[in-house]
Amino acid sequence: MLETTVDEGVGDVVEWLALLRKFKLRRSDKVTIHGCALLSDPSSRKKLGSEVWTVYEQVAIASMDCQCLDISNLCIERLLSKFSNSVRVGRLEGMLYEAKGQWQQAEKKYQNLLELQPADAFIHKRKVAIAKGQGNLSSAVEALKQYLDIFMADHEAWRELAEIYISLQKYNQAAFCYEELIMMDTSNANWHLNYAEVYYTIGGVESLRIAKKYYASAIKLSAGKNLRALYGICLCSAAINQAKGRNKDEESIDLQSLASSVILKEYKEKCPKKLALVTSVLEKQKP
């Protein structure tokens, strides 16, 4: 609501920026445009009072996102002249180095800041970002591990680590991370689903069984709405049957047939065109 009025140039920019900060939104392009307009006008700067420094910070970060580095440079310079040795401004400097691709300087900056404030989670996270930005995933893993050794209840970091492990194809480690995530938020179907997928990828009858169980729980938690979990059940059951060969099957194949019929029903309702394709795919997996 407010955003559209701001775009038209009549809304209250200050209020909108404060709202973005409050909800941690990141409309970088618009923040850069409107924030710059606000900050370049001395009278409105005066009106902001002490809030002006927060806005400077916000605009600096937003303009880094947009690669308008001279704007963020300006903002940071202003902040530096006011708070010459604040850690918070130091973080911004480090981020600017990062945005310019000067990794070594950024690294050094963060290292200095960490000596001042060893328990600053944000700086630790930036170090991970440096490693990732350079495309060096294994050192990103190392940095993340260091971070998680201290802040071990941070679920976002666990998620990041899991995703990096997957892209490095270290599935057992990724599974560990997803276990951690499942425990932190037991009712989130996504973690169950991802965990199942990791185990399905690892392969082998035992892993497939585990994967099937977690696909089932993902179905339960998403009330059967998650097609990916439904497909997963079908694939898992098919793979298990194949692996076991002839001597099946004390396990129920109920779940598989149920899942496939739910998939078909979904498609019938929402996308009848692809029904034939899906039917043939599912038919092939039937024992």
């Binding site: 169980k213 089932a216 729980s217 339960k220 009330a223 779940l255 899942a259």
Partner: peptide, 11 residues
């Protein structure tokens, strides 16, 4: 949970 999932699908 597996059994519960079954009943969800049946529903």
């Amino acid at each position: 949970l597996e059994q519960q999932a079954e009943s969800v699908l049946r529903q």
